[in-house]
Write a protein that binds this DNA or RNA. Structure first.
Lengths: 213, 213
DNA sequence: TTGCAAATGTGAGGAAAACTCATGTTTTCA
DNA sequence: TGAAAACATGAGTTTTCCTCACATTTGCAA
C-alpha cells in the first residue's frame, strides 16, 4: 500500500488516477508532500488546509502536487490509508491469540484504551475521521477498515461460542466496533472527564455483550 | 426558534448575524429559500447545493439570500434546527409517561423504529446529519439535541432506578442515545437488510442496558 | 557516450462557487 | 406625507481548486 497514491472515488465518480512515483527523487518528494499535509492538518484541520500551502511547505510546485494526487481529498485519503494499515496490524495482533472469555475481556479493554489514547494524541487522525461522513471515499475506507477490524472480533467470538449463529455474531461485532469508533469521536469532542466516562461506559457495555450472552 | 435565522458559528468564529425578517413579505421569502434549499439537498446533497441555485429556485436574488443567511452553512443549520425541534417534541412525548421497565422497553423500541424510518425516508435529514461531524456549528447543535433527548431517557431511568448513581445514569443515557444516532447513520449507508439487522442488534443491546443492570 | 523517450517539475492562468456592496425599491410609522 | 428602516438586486470581487503547455531531469538502449 506504500505506492498507491492513486486516490479513491469522490461523489461516486472515480477520480482520474495519477502517476505513482517511480524514481527515488519523486518518492521523496511525495513523502514531503504528505508530511506537509499532515502538519497543516494538525495545525488547522483538513478543511483549512490549502493546496498551495501544502506545496509551499513541501518545497514543491503546485503542479507537482497534482502530479501525484488527483485532488485534495486524495492527500487526506492517502494519510487515512496509512493510519488504517497501522491500526489494523495492531488490532489483529491484540486479538489473534484470545482463547477464552477472560482473555477477550483483557484484550478488548486494552484495545479500547490504546485506541482512545491514539485519538487523543493524534490531531490528524482525529480530524480525518471526523470528516469521514462527508466524503464518500473516506467513508468507504473507514467502512472497509471497520469491517476488517470487526472481522478479528468476529473470529474470536466464533471461537468462543461455536454454537451461536455466525451471522448474528458478525452483526454484533461490526456494530460494537462501529459504536467504539463513534464513542471515540464523541469522547474527544467533549470535556476530557466526560470523555473518559463515556469510553468507560462503552467498554462496560461492549464487554457485557461480548463475554456474556 | 422560528425567526432565528442568525446562524451559528463556524471554525470557532461567530458568523456575522444577519437581519431577521420582520415583514410579512420577507418572512415568506425566507420560507421559500429554505424550501428551495431543502429540495436541492434532497436532490443532490448539501455539498452540491449551490447558493445561486437556491436563490434562483426560491425566486429571489443571491443578495436576498445573504440578507438573511450569513453563509451557506447557516441555511443548513436552520433546516437542522427545525428537525431537532420536531423530533424532540416527539421523543419527549414518547418517553414522558413511562413508569415501568416494560413501558420503557415498548417506548424505546418504538422510538428507535420511528427514528429509523425517519432517517430512511428523509434524504434531507440524512444528508444534514451525515455532514454533522465536519461542521462545528452543526456538531454543536447535534450534541445539544442529543443531550436534550438523552435527558428524557435519563429522567425515565432515574424514575425506574432511584437507587442508582445519577451521574452514571446520565452517562449511560447519553451514550445510548449517541450510539443510536451512530447506528442510524451506519444503517442507512449499507444495504437495507444489513441496516435492519444492525438497528435490531442496537435495540437489543440498548434495551439490555436500559432495563436490566 | 549519446540521444531519445518517459518521468518529473513548474507556475501562470482558467474555472467555479461563495460572498460583498453600492444602489434602488418598498414598507412602516410618527 | 415624508423620512427612516427594511428589503431587494446582481454585477463584480475574492478565494481556492485544479489544468496545461512547456521546461528539465532521469533511465536506458544503441
Amino acid at each position: 500500500m506504500e505506492g498507491s497514491t492513486v486516490s479513491g472515488s469522490q461523489d461516486g465518480q472515480i477520480a482520474l488516477p495519477r502517476r505513482a512515483p517511480s524514481q527515488q527523487r519523486s518518492r521523496e518528494r511525495v513523502e514531503r508532500m504528505l508530511a506537509a499535509a499532515s502538519a497543516l492538518i494538525a495545525e488547522q484541520g483538513s478543511d483549512a488546509m490549502r493546496m498551495g500551502e501544502v506545496a509551499e511547505r513541501a518545497g514543491v510546485s503546485i503542479g507537482s502536487l497534482y502530479q501525484f494526487f488527483p485532488d485534495k481529498r486524495a492527500i487526506i485519503w492517502a494519510l487515512a490509508e496509512r493510519y488504517t494499515a497501522e491500526s489494523q496490524a495492531c488490532i489483529s495482533a491484540a486479538l489473534a491469540d484470545v482463547i477464552d472469555a477472560e482473555g477477550l475481556r483483557r484484550a478488548f479493554s486494552e484495545l479500547v484504551d490504546i485506541y482512545y489514547r491514539l485519538f487523543l494524541a493524534s490531531p490528524v487522525m482525529r480530524d480525518i475521521w471526523s470528516g469521514t461522513q462527508a466524503d464518500k471515499a473516506l467513508r468507504e475506507l473507514e467502512l472497509a477498515d471497520s469491517r476488517a477490524n470487526a472481522d478479528f472480533l468476529t473470529a474470536v467470538l466464533k471461537r468462543l461460542r461455536p454454537a451461536a449463529d455466525p451471522a448474528a455474531l458478525e452483526t454484533t461485532a461490526f456494530l460494537i466496533w462501529q459504536m467504539g469508533e463513534a464513542t471515540m469521536r464523541l469522547a474527544i469532542s467533549v470535556e476530557r472527564q466526560e470523555g473518559d466516562d463515556l469510553v468507560a461506559a462503552y467498554k462496560r457495555m461492549a464487554l457485557r455483550e461480548l463475554v456474556s450472552e
